[in-house]
C-alpha cells in the first residue's frame, strides 16, 4: 500500500516524464528476490550464457559441415577468424600467433556481448566496470608477467627509451611508467563507458517519447543512436582486441 502511493508520487514528481536511464544496468537475480552473492545466477549469468551460445552458434555450429565452398554462416566464422588472426599477426608478429586463441576469446566475447546488449530489453554485460576491469587487468597482468618471464629484468628497458637524448630519458621513463600503469584503467573504462553512454542516451530519448509533440524526433534520434551503437559495438570490441595485441607486442618485443 505504502509502496504503491510512493510509486504514484514518484511519477507525478517528474510531471509525466519518466527517466530511468540507469535502471537497465541493474543486476538482478534470475530467480527470486534474494541478496546477490558471488554464485547467484543473475541477468549477468543469463546474458553471458547467451553470448557463449551465440559464439558456439557462430563459430562451431556454422562450421560443422566443413565445406570447401563456405555457406553464409561458415563465411562469417571464417571472416571472424581471419580478421582476428590477421590483426594478431600484423601487430605482434609471427611469435604472437600462439596467443591468438586468448585474443580471439576476448574479441568474440566482447563483440557478442555488445551486440546482444543492443537487443531492446536486454542486459549489456560489457557496460559494467567489473566485467571490463577483470578483462583489462587480466591482459595487463598477463602481459607484464610475460614480459618479465621472456626478457627478465631487461623488460624494464621498455621504459628507458634509448632513441631519445640522454637528459630526456628520465623524464620520458617517468611518463612511460605512468602511461604503462594507466593502461588497464583506460583499457577498461573505454569499453564500459562507450557501452554505458550509448544505452543510457537511448533510454533518455525513449523517456522523451512520452510527450506526443516530441515523440517523432525522439524515435528518429533513437534510430540514429541505435545505428551508431551498432558501429560502436563492433569498434569497441576491435579496439579492445587491438590494444591487447599492442600490449602483447610490448611484452614480446620491448626494445622498440
Amino acid at each position: 500500500m505504502a509502496s504503491e502511493s510512493l510509486g504514484a508520487e514518484h511519477v507525478s514528481e517528474e510531471s509525466g516524464l519518466v527517466f530511468h536511464p540507469m535502471d537497465q544496468f541493474i543486476v538482478k537475480p534470475l530467480f527470486g528476490d534474494g541478496p546477490i552473492s558471488w554464485y547467484t545466477p543473475t541477468n549477468v549469468t543469463l546474458w553471458m550464457g547467451l553470448a557463449v551460445l551465440a559464439i558456439i552458434a557462430l563459430l562451431v555450429l556454422s562450421t560443422s559441415k566443413r565445406a570447401i565452398v563456405p555457406g553464409r554462416g561458415q563465411s562469417i566464422a571464417e571472416l571472424a577468424y581471419g580478421f582476428v588472426y590477421k590483426m594478431v599477426e600484423d601487430v605482434t608478429g609471427k611469435d604472437g600467433i600462439k596467443y591468438f586463441p586468448y585474443i580471439m576469446t576476448l574479441f568474440m566475447f566482447i563483440v557478442c556481448a555488445n551486440f546482444l546488449g543492443l537487443i531492446p530489453g536486454s542486459f549489456t554485460t560489457t557496460s559494467h566496470l567489473a566485467v571490463t576491469v577483470v578483462m583489462a587487468l587480466a591482459v595487463f597482468l598477463t602481459v607484464t608477467v610475460l614480459g618479465f618471464y621472456l626478457h627478465g629484468a631487461s623488460f624494464i628497458k621498455l621504459f628507458w627509451i634509448s632513441a631519445a637524448p640522454l637528459p630526456l630519458r628520465p623524464v620520458l621513463a617517468l611518463i612511460e611508467v605512468i602511461s604503462y600503469f594507466v593502461r588497464p584503467v583506460s583499457h577498461s573504462i573505454r569499453l564500459m563507458g562507450n557501452m554505458m553512454a550509448g544505452h543510457a542516451v537511448i533510454k533518455v530519448f525513449a523517456g522523451f517519447a512520452a510527450i506526443t509533440a516530441i515523440a517523432p524526433i525522439s524515435v528518429l534520434a533513437i534510430s540514429a543512436i541505435y545505428a551508431l551503437e551498432i558501429l560502436v559495438s563492433f569498434i569497441q570490441a576491435y579496439v579492445f582486441a587491438i590494444l591487447t595485441c599492442v600490449y602483447l607486442k610490448d611484452a614480446l618485443h620491448p626494445h622498440h
Binding site: 558471488w38 543473475t42 549477468v44 559494467h128 567489473a130
Partner: peptide, 20 residues
C-alpha cells in the same frame, strides 16, 4: 554486485576459451 559479475565473467571466458 562485483563478485557476482566477476565470477560469471571468469566462467564465461573459460568456457569460451575451451570451446574456441
Amino acid at each position: 554486485w562485483f563478485p557476482n559479475q566477476m565470477f560469471w565473467l571468469v566462467v564465461t571466458l573459460v568456457v569460451i576459451f575451451l570451446v574456441l
